[in-house]
């Protein structure tokens, strides 16, 4: 298992690295600058992929949490935990990139816009998830608690989004969903989305392997 696993990991890692290199080169160097926003628009090639990957990661947390509570197999829990960490990482990157873009474009690092605020709340929910995990000493109990938060958090996302949207909206609606992006810019964007998805898959596989080893270590310690 370890052999085949590490070979797959190597392939995945190389693919992610290659795709990122090509994607970032195309996006940051080759693609033409935006007609209105200029060079600063290139942050889109980072901002959009990271936020999509973050949503993917939190969906995986939900799937892993449901899977764990139904089957009680450790693997589901390891999947959910690994994906939650990556989700937090990518959400933080999204907010950081958004702030860097927002300063020259809107004139402020932070605005109380619907989607930005929703993303920040998401970050807080899953930070809470991770802190809860760290605080519970008993492994299976921690896994159960975390799964409950993983499920509730996911169900809360649409409600939070709706409420914040009614409350305030300034962010441009998703250009990707509206089809408002010129193909010249769209191609590098999709390239980068693929690259970041591969990066996520690679990091997830790594983190899950680590999770399995950690669980194994705890088990052996207990046996001694």
């Amino acid at each position: 298992m370890a052999r085949g696993g590490s070979r797959l990991m190597l392939v995945l890692g190389l693919a992610a690295a290659a795709a990122l290199l090509v994607g970032l080169y195309t996006g940051l160097v080759r693609a033409p600058a935006d007609a209105v926003q200029g060079e600063v628009q290139r942050i889109m090639y980072l901002h959009v992929p990271t936020v999509l990957v973050a949503y993917l990661a939190f969906t995986v947390v939900f799937v892993g949490s449901v899977g764990y509570l139904l089957t009680r197999r450790e693997g589901w829990d390891i999947l959910a935990h690994a994906s939650a960490e990556l989700g937090v990482l990518f959400t933080a990157l999204t907010i950081a990139a958004g702030a860097i873009w927002g300063k020259p474009t809107w004139g402020a690092w932070w605005t109380w816009d619907a989607r930005i605020t929703t993303t920040a709340i998401l970050l807080l929910i899953y930070l809470g998830y991770l802190m809860l995990r760290a605080a519970v000493e008993d492994q299976t109990r921690g896994a159960r608690y975390a799964a409950v938060v993983g499920i509730l958090g996911f169900l809360d996302i649409p409600i939070i989004h709706k409420s914040v949207e009614w409350w305030r909206t300034l962010h441009q609606p998703s250009s990707l969903a509206r089809g408002a992006i010129d193909p010249v810019l769209l191609f590098p964007l999709w390239l980068n989305i693929t690259a970041f998805a591969l990066l996520y898959a690679f990091l997830l596989a790594q983190r899950m392997e680590l999770g399995r080893l950690e669980a194994e270590l705890t088990r052996r310690r207990l046996e001694e």
């Binding site: 807080l124 930070l127 409950v148 409420s163």
Partner: peptide, 29 residues
């Protein structure tokens, strides 16, 4: 969930507050 944890005083509000943002917004409005 948090009642048996040592860090409950910190963890409980930390977990709860982000979840109830919609309640706060809607109720205030």
């Amino acid at each position: 969930m948090t009642m048996h944890l040592r860090a409950r005083e910190v963890l409980f509000p930390l977990l709860l507050l982000p979840f109830v943002v919609p309640v706060l917004l809607a109720a205030v409005k």
